[in-house]
Design a protein around this nucleic acid. Structure first.
Lengths: 109, 109
DNA sequence: TCCATATTTCTACTATTATCGATATATGGA
DNA sequence: TCCATATATCGATAATAGTAGAAATATGGA
């Protein structure tokens, strides 16, 4: 991942509704949720939500597939990993990574 | 770190000049760089740069101290760690953290 | 005290983003 | 085919962000 892609990814996440969407979809892995459910759950009009979903998708943070009348969105965790790898490489150094390492030990035993 | 703080941090980084500033200052740890140097190095007018530095500082991504006529800025890596911890906790799950773990092993041997 | 340097603040302008009503498209059932 | 449901696109508006000239503030030296 390069800086341009990282900025798109970070920018996509740096907004209340969109961060909420991503968090929600991470909790619903690996099944995902249909667009309407996401909108209802977060109390946002469906067309507004659609615009946010499209921004997250363009940043490759979401994938989607149609299932009959529903469009199911899923969090793309590979992109999340990629942006975190970018941050570690460019915005971290040596000992300063230690706290993250500890965090990971707890999460991934 | 909560979502509101995370959005401020991600938003501060999600802009070309500001991401460049942060990357530059990480490379200049632990000495830091004066505001004018940062502006010159990135070819941005000093007042424009000052506005970006203030946004990064407000997000707690930079610290600064006056040294005679210069104001020296440093990257605040603790905030970087905090936002990455937030992302791991809220936007990651189980096995999906593995790639980041490998990345860390390489960085922090 | 006066001046040069370093940086910030003020201000206005332009561009981008967020929001949502209205409309369009796509799917499946009656 | 007609209708209801699910979602996306269009278009307008309001809010926010980025930019940089001009002026203000702070420091140290002559």
């Amino acid at each position: 991942m390069d800086s341009i892609k990282a900025i798109e990814t970070l920018g996509a996440l740096a907004q209340t509704t969109r961060l909420d969407v991503f968090k929600l979809l991470v909790r619903h892995e690996p099944t995902g949720l249909p667009a309407g459910q996401i909108a209802k759950q977060l109390d946002v009009p469906p067309n507004t939500m659609s615009s946010h979903l499209s921004i997250l998708s363009r940043a490759n943070l979401l994938s989607s597939k149609r299932e009959s009348r529903l469009i199911i969105y899923r969090a793309n965790l590979a992109t999340m990993n990629a942006v975190m790898a970018f941050m570690l490489e460019n915005c971290c150094s040596g000992d300063d990574c230690a706290p993250i390492a500890n965090q990971l030990e707890r999460l991934c035993q």
